[in-house]
Nucleic acid binder design. Structure first.
Length: 567
RNA sequence: CGGGGUGUAGCGCAGAGGGUAGCGCGCAUGGUUUGGGACCAUGAGGUCGGAGGUUCAAAUCCUCUCACCCCGACCA
């Protein structure tokens, strides 16, 4: 490809709206263009990268035994109502009506459609196991699209679904995918961390995420340097800081004028926060819930939602809490009878807590559970933090950030049961098919690759997903010798099937070098009068500072070898 | 949805206090240049996000609206 003919221009200045590195570089390199919030076009260079990623994924899916198929974006809303997941997705689901006023939605994922499809094609255990996948556009009306391609409303996902007859089969499918995912990310030049995850709106039990570790990541990961424990904060467990055991003392009321927050209580009464109990109020599916947790620990809303088994969860407003009879600033579970109380298990580690007295400007000392109050539900609903103990080995936990590029789930039979996808076992008895689902966001993977591979000059594409392998960069094109040599090398490389971006523009060296760096093509081949004197060209890897001379003779074969070694 | 911010040429920006829009980059033409974003000359390009209002006069003041970005609750 000749740069002079290439659609898409590089830009010197960073577009103002872009804050994330990958977003900035993709825009500056002319690889994407924004159409609306969270909606982008790919220009030729960006699209080449995209297709390379797509091919790597396809190869690995096929190798793992996946069969590719294609399902529609447009789906009847009814299908979603059957599994109840229309509610789980809520406003994230793009819905529309057809001319007959039938309700449709744009698929945010395809468990429903594929399960329905499988129901019609699978009757017997002999038809299983199955691994079916597609690479297709998904629509999710994200509350807040952000960071270029990292979080968008229209995106491409590879989604594979596994169908098995038993748990063992599911585990095997899961392991196959886990391995295939490792292969994919490695081949794309990414370092990922496998973390335990919450399964969210998709539902199901066990699930893992593949995180690209980078500061700009949206997700916080809690991990252990000692034993490889790693989990999304949403899911992460920890050994909560222990409090010295004490003999329970009698309840004692203290005046605490103007004291409301845990911070103030702790300061006013000179007790550590871990010696206080915090009351937090949530509205879970429309009902007020009273949450009790040790004062030094934050509530993890994902865990809370799971513990409650609710769909919608939000913090209650102060007005809602007061209406329910709560004394703001001095609330505690003591004497509360008509509100559901859920407590974090941290309240059992410790004694003689300070808690609200449910009277204005008053707290209790020496509150003890279960002596002084009742709890309807006790669970781990705490946000794990760096510094706390690893749940597996007890060492100190660390925290990093990452971008979730892949997510795998053991779904179980939730959807197959709802949609009646059954198989007959060897004894003639019907059972719901056991499912798993496995997703990779291609656009996000592309962006994450840049987040992990760039410098101040621009992108540094890993060879496997680079839009072109070679940036052919002649200097002084007005010099006939250079022009001839450049054309000849270009033709030769093309003939050898090498992917070459030929900068045939009559631009200054600085412009060309800067564009080459910005675009991130792995190998730069410079042809100049200087090097031609010794019948050689200059080779520079994008990832390295120094260049080296290489004889013009047999250049194609040499470059081919070099490229092969860089994969 | 809550909070914060921005909309002026393809990109980055300027334009206090009303007088009909400017700079840099980019683009076009010509010339001189060429190893890390060259220089000179000439030129094209804007219903100032949109609607309404105030005014002799609005990018500028008022009202409403839309879009986009950032921080939080969601997820590939």
């Amino acid at each position: 490809m000749r740069v002079s003919k290439l659609f898409g221009k590089t830009q010197r200045e960073t577009p103002a709206e872009a804050e994330t590195v990958s977003h900035q570089l993709l825009l500056r390199a002319g690889m994407i263009h924004q159409v609306a919030a969270g909606v982008y076009s790919y220009l030729p260079l960006g699209w080449r990268v995209f297709k390379k990623i797509e091919n790597i994924i396809r190869e690995e899916m096929d190798k793992a035994g996946g069969q590719e198929l294609m399902m529609p974006v447009l789906q009847p809303l009814e299908l979603w109502q059957e599994t109840g997941r229309d509610l789980a997705f809520g406003k994230g689901l793009f819905t529309l009506s057809d001319r007959k006023d039938r309700k449709l939605c744009l698929g945010p994922t395809h468990e429903e459609v594929i399960t329905q499809l499988v129901r019609y094609n699978v009757q017997s255990y002999r038809d299983l196991p199955l691994l079916l996948y597609q690479i297709q556009t998904k629509f999710r009306d994200e509350p807040r699209p952000r960071a270029g391609l990292i979080r968008v409303r229209e995106f491409t996902m590879k989604d594979l679904y596994s169908f098995d007859t038993d748990e063992d089969g599911l585990n095997q499918s899961y392991d196959k995918m886990l391995q295939a995912y490792q292969n994919i990310f490695t081949r794309c030049g990414l370092h990922t961390l496998l973390v335990e995850a919450d399964s969210g709106a998709i539902g199901g039990k066990e699930s893992h995420e593949f995180m690209v570790i980078t500061e700009s990541g949206e997700d916080e990961i809690i991990h252990c340097a000692h034993c490889r424990y790693a989990a999304n904060v949403d899911k992460a467990e920890s050994i909560k800081g222990k409090v010295e055991p004490e003999e329970p003392l009698p309840l004692e009321e203290v005046a605490t004028p103007g004291v409301g927050t845990i911070e103030q209580v702790s300061n006013f009464l000179k007790v550590p926060k871990s010696h206080t109990l915090k009351a937090v109020f949530y509205i879970a599916d429309g009902k007020l819930v009273f949450v009790v947790i040790r004062g030094d620990i934050e509530v993890n809303e994902v865990k809370l939602r799971n513990a409650l088994g609710c769909v919608e969860l939000r913090l209650a407003t102060e007005a809602e809490a007061i209406e329910a009879g709560v004394v703001a600033g001095s609330a505690s579970a003591i004497g509360i009878s008509d509100i559901k109380i859920i407590a974090d298990d941290s309240i059992t580690s410790g004694a003689n807590f300070v808690a609200g007295a449910n009277k204005p400007d008053t707290h209790f000392r020496n509150v003890n559970y279960p002596r002084d109050f009742r709890v309807d539900l006790m669970a781990d609903i705490a946000q794990a933090r760096a510094g706390e103990g690893c749940p597996q080995c007890g060492s100190k936990l660390l925290s990093t950030r990452g971008i979730e590029v892949g997510h795998i789930f053991k779904l179980g039979t939730f959807i197959s049961e709802k949609l009646g996808a059954l198989f007959i076992d060897p004894n003639g008895a019907p059972h719901p098919i056991i499912m798993g689902c496995y997703g990779i966001g291609l656009d996000r993977l592309l962006a994450a690759a840049i987040e992990q591979n760039h410098d101040a000059q621009g992108i540094i594409w890993p060879m496997s997903i680079a839009p072109y392998h070679i940036y052919l960069c002649p200097l002084h094109l007005e010099n006939p010798e250079v022009a001839t040599a450049a054309e000849k090398v270009y033709a030769e490389l093309e003939a050898q099937g090498l992917e070459v971006l030929f900068d045939d523009r009559k631009e200054s060296p600085g412009v060309k070098f800067n564009d080459a760096d910005l675009l991130g093509i792995p190998i730069r081949v410079t042809i100049s009068p200087r090097a031609l004197e010794t019948d050689s060209v200059e080779i520079k890897k994008r990832s390295e500072k120094e260049s080296e001379l290489m004889p013009l003779e047999g250049i194609a074969a040499r470059l081919k070898e070099l490229i092969k070694n860089l994969f």
